[in-house]
Simulated assay, not measured.
Amino acid sequence: MEVDYLIVGQGIAGTMLSYYLLQQSNTVTIIDNYNPSSASNIASGVINPITGRRFVRTWMIETLMPFAVNAYRALEKELNISLIQQTNLLDFHSTPQMQLAFTNQLPTETEYLRVPENSLQWKKYFNYPFGVGETHPTWLVNLQLLIQTWRKKLSTQQLLIAEHFSIEALQIHPSYIQYQGIQAKAIIFCNGTQAVNLPYFQKLPFAPNKGEALILAIQQLPRQHIYKQGLSLVPWQSNLWWAGSSYEWSYEHANPTEIFRQKTLQQLQQWLQLPFEIKAHVAAERPATLERRPFIGMHPYFPQIGIFNGLGTKGCSLAPYFAKVFSEHLKYGQPLIPEVAIHRFHKILAP
């Protein structure tokens, strides 16, 4: 069998890249052994234009957010599902310093920050002695539904190999690759933290981190907002709530921990005034990078091998735009911006 591109991994990166490659009439096969606990499958799905304790704009958000919204709406039509909704974020300041930082940023960040109307209405749901601010618009993407529905479409069209990828079976030739009877112009790795150990990309400055979240049932909490005070409460599937997440840079394993569970319970009990019930506890490794910028492009010394990875916690906003950019780079030779192109690491990637 011959295809244009073999893609390894069907998280948000592999899903969006395959979507745009197929739109350009490329032939594609994806290799993915479905993992319900992958970073994409347990991510909250939030697109937030504001980040950090200083309430600054997320990198390239003016471009990334509108592109992502339009991309997910196009996918809604194609797949006949509901994927994205505007779900603004209410930030309940945890300290006087956080309240001051928000107040100081208000005069300059008028596009995304504001004080919500009737901010006292949330007193029956939360404890917040230092006030509340609103980020708008923020968006909520049902990543799990997208990945599952796209997977079904790939399977129906016989574009999916549902198994674990074996690097030992990959054969590199001067102008193509072969993998278990498949010949392709190139192979592109969209396999998250598994790419850290690939011989072609293990020298890249990956910085994987671990995130944990609790899945909660909370009766009577309005679902038209995302709520934040240190941790975030995000409307989740089946009328549940996603509570998280941690950012652990040093960890012994990628499994849920009792330490996170107890710490989050304590935070919730101090902040939330409604009863809640824990339904699940999830954890995953994120494919983050030291520069907090994605790794995109074809290997400078093995041009048949590419990567679309390192999206970290911003996969929902980064993946649509850069998947389209990468697909145009592959199809038409359009340049990648220097901040994401892996050619910036050509010296350390030398064999």
Rank of each mutant, 00 (worst) to 15 (best):
Q178P: 04
Q178N: 05
Y179M: 11
Y179F: 09
Y179A: 14
Y179P: 07
Y179V: 08
Q180A: 12
Q180N: 15
G181H: 07
G181D: 06
I182W: 10
A184R: 14
A184Q: 12
A184K: 14
A184E: 15
A184P: 13
K185E: 02
K185P: 01
K185D: 03
I187V: 13
I187A: 15
I187Y: 14
I187E: 13
I187H: 11
I187P: 11
I188V: 08
I188M: 12
F189P: 00
C190H: 01
C190W: 06
N191Y: 09
N191M: 08
N191L: 06
N191W: 06
G192S: 09
G192W: 06
G192R: 10
G192L: 11
G192I: 13
T193N: 15
Q194L: 10
A195L: 09
A195P: 00
A195F: 06
V196Q: 08
V196P: 00
V196F: 05
V196H: 05
N197C: 04
L198M: 03
L198V: 00
L198E: 02
P199W: 10
P199K: 14
P199N: 07
F201D: 03
F201C: 04
F201A: 02
Q202I: 03
Q202M: 07
Q202F: 04
Q202N: 04
Q202D: 01
Q202P: 03
K203M: 08
L204N: 12
P205Y: 07
P205A: 11
P205S: 13
F206A: 14
F206D: 12
F206Y: 15
A207F: 12
A207C: 09
A207G: 08
P208L: 10
P208I: 07
P208T: 04
P208Y: 05
P208D: 01
P208V: 03
N209D: 00
N209G: 03
K210L: 12
K210Y: 10
K210R: 14
G211K: 07
G211F: 05
E212F: 00
E212A: 00
E212S: 01
E212G: 01
E212I: 01
A213L: 07
A213G: 13
A213M: 15
A213P: 09
L214V: 12
I215D: 04
I215A: 05
I215G: 05
I215P: 02
L216P: 01
A217K: 13
A217T: 10
I218S: 12
I218Y: 14
Q220L: 09
Q220C: 12
Q220N: 14
Q220H: 15
L221Y: 11
L221S: 08
L221F: 08
L221N: 13
L221C: 09
L221R: 15
P222Y: 12
P222V: 11
P222E: 10
R223P: 05
R223Y: 00
Q224N: 06
